[in-house]
Structures are given as C-alpha cells and as structure tokens.
Design a protein around this nucleic acid. Structure first.
Lengths: 140, 140
DNA sequence: TTGCGTGCAAAGGTTTTGCATGGCA
DNA sequence: TGCCATGCAAAACCTTTGCACGCAA
C-alpha cells in the first residue's frame, strides 16, 4: 500500500459507507465536506484514479458522466447487478440468481463474456413505472 | 420523420459509411469537413441527440469520452439487445430468446421494467476475450 | 530529510445554450 | 408564412495540469 493520507482514507471510507450507491465526483466532494473532511477536487480525481488502479473502487461511465463505486474485494463472484432508473436517475443494486445462468449462456452460445460490474440495465423502477402509468391514464 | 436537412443527412450518411467504427464528435466533424459538408458543432450535437432518440445511432460512453455508431438494427419492434465490447469498443446486436424471460422475471419479482433499447451489456467479444487470454498466458 | 500528496488556480477539452438568421413544409 | 434547424460565440462543465507547500515514511 502506498502512502495513506487522511484524504485518501476519507475518500475510501466515504465510498465504502455508501457502497450501495454510485457517487459522482461532485457528490463525493460534498459528502466529504459534510463529514468535515473536505478534499480538493484535484486530489479527489487523483486519488480516484489510483484507487481504481489498485482495484479498490470501480469507475462507471454513464450518460450522466462518471460515477465511482466501492469495490467489495470479495472476489465478487456474487452477482452484482446494476439497474439505472431512467425516471428518477437512481442506480439500484440487485442480487438475482437468474443472471448468472444468462451470462453463462451468452458466453457459451454467443461467445460474449459479460462484465457484470460494468453492465448497467436501464429501465424504470417501480415508483417511476407506476407514476408513468398513472400519467398515461390520467391525461390526454 | 421530422425535417430532413442536408446536415442531418450528411451526419447519418457519414456514420453509416463508417459503421464499423465508433466516431467521436470531433472525428465526425472533421469527417464532415473532409467530404465537403461542414456542420457546426452545436448542430452535430443536437442532431446526434435526435438520431439517438429515434434509434438510428448508438451513443457509447467510454473512458475516452462519448462515441457514436450507426445502428443497423433499424426500426424493429423486435427486441434489440446490445453488447458493448470493452476491448475493441464495438457494439454488437443480438437476438436471444433467453433475455425476454429474464426481463419478465425482473419486472414481476423485482418490479423493474427494463428498457431493452437503452440497456447495454458490457463485456468482451470473442476476439477480444481470446486476445486477452493469450496476453495473460504470454507474459509475466 | 525526502519525496509523494495536497490545494489552489489556471488551462484544456467537451458539451450546452442564447440568439439572430436561414430554409423547408 | 410559420417553425424548426443552423451557426456562431459565449457559457457551463468536467477533468487535468503546474507549482509551491505540507506531511507521511
């Protein structure tokens, strides 16, 4: 492990505590400010790059920009399944046993190896789907 | 179909002719200049957004920024499944009967409605997977 | 003490926006 | 004629870089 500075520590801790979410750099910056450990933007970018290289975190590029996620070192054979709601913009995590068989099928039959940590399913969460359905019925 | 302007036409033609590649906005702009149909940057961005909405092209967000690719899949109400190769960056289309049941499961059990046109599976295509495997064996 | 990490501010690049103009239906 | 698309330039953003200083090993 390289240097351990309090900034690096704070960044990693912050991401670890909110491991269920994907954080943008600005969200991370304000989260750090909120817990009383403000870190300069340049430092955040530099540390995130290093943390990604060392496998501590994962970077996800989306339509809305880059997001960072704590990486559970546990050799994550667990199905990590990301759902992005197009309605409210939130990113949900899901453990679902139906995924692995599908991925195996894709690999064996279609010769494509899925990277589940980088795969983001887009759609609507229950709240937004219900809301949209209501709107459709409601007017016009 | 909305207006068909020569700029829109030029952009789509340019992407179609180079459908094997992913083009960045600046690459697209200079390609348009090269064929004698220069288009303003703002217009390119605005048309790309529309072309993406109508399903004519794909937008790919990568580490190196956004890229655009012509979509061969046409209008089709058929289920269009997208695979993005992290190795070569290309987007592959796939018709696979295993996906629909999964999506139904997600909707019924996890209350998440998948938007298959917006969902991009990330991973490695057969070529890149083989290459990577080779590299791993080869050195170190 | 040494060298990497930090913060600030400036630079760089990309994408969006405002507004007057132009062209298709 | 009425709209929408266009082009330009400015603005807004995000990310990187240069440099002097600070702090962990």
């Amino acid at each position: 492990m390289p240097y351990t500075t309090k900034q690096r520590q704070a960044i990693l801790t912050c991401l670890a505590q909110r491991r269920a979410e994907l954080l943008s750099v600005s969200e991370l910056a304000s989260a750090l400010r909120d817990i009383g450990s403000p870190v300069g933007l340049a430092t955040i970018y530099r540390q995130l790059e290093k943390l990604e290289e060392t496998g501590h975190i994962h970077k996800v590029n989306t339509e809305e920009g880059a997001f960072y996620q704590y990486c559970d070192h546990g050799e994550s054979d667990r199905d990590c399944f990301l759902l992005k709601c197009e309605g409210c913009g939130r990113i949900l995590h899901l453990d679902c046993s139906h995924l692995k068989p599908l991925y195996e099928h894709l690999e064996q039959e279609h010769h494509f190896v899925i990277d589940s940590r980088a795969t983001m399913f887009s759609g609507l969460c229950d709240v937004c789907a219900a809301q949209r359905k209501e709107e459709t019925h409601g007017s016009k």
